[in-house]
Amino acid sequence: MILWADYDSRRASVVDGRSRVDTLDCNRYTRAAERCWFTIDASCLTWEGQQFQGKRAIVEKLSSLPFTKIAHSITAQDHQPTPDCCILSMVVGQLKADDDPIMGFHQSFILKNINDAWVCTNDMFRLALHNFG
């Protein structure tokens, strides 16, 4: 489980944001297992416009994505504190799934501290490949 002790420090959240993203760079099984720790039953995932709510539905979606290997490369990441003491993160990067061509992606997260653990309550993912005429 990931525990981010110092959420008052933006620097810490940046570092932790990176390590969290890095934990997603593994095979789909590990990836889904990792995500169990980060989501709660109220969490929302929007994956290419399709909505999933709750840890079970989110993990089921992530673990059934149709590739066996994936590698993410983060181009840029931004983090901000929100008025409710959450952290809003935006990631721009590239990914390579199996033997598919490299694709750009955009992803946003809201992280919330619940009982001294940071959990992901909101997650939105889009491939960037439709964004270029």
């Binding site: 109220a42 929302c44 929007t46 416009g49 909505q51 929100t82 409710d84 959450c86 809003l88 935006m90 955009h106 946003s108 809201i110 919330k112 309550t121 909101n122 939105m124 889009r126 960037a128 439709h130 964004n131 270029f132 005429g133």
Partner: peptide
Amino acid sequence: ITKQDCQPTPDNCIVVMVMGQ
């Protein structure tokens, strides 16, 4: 705007992600 996604947050806020040109 190419795509926009909205979600409610646990603190009764709304998060919106936009991609476009």
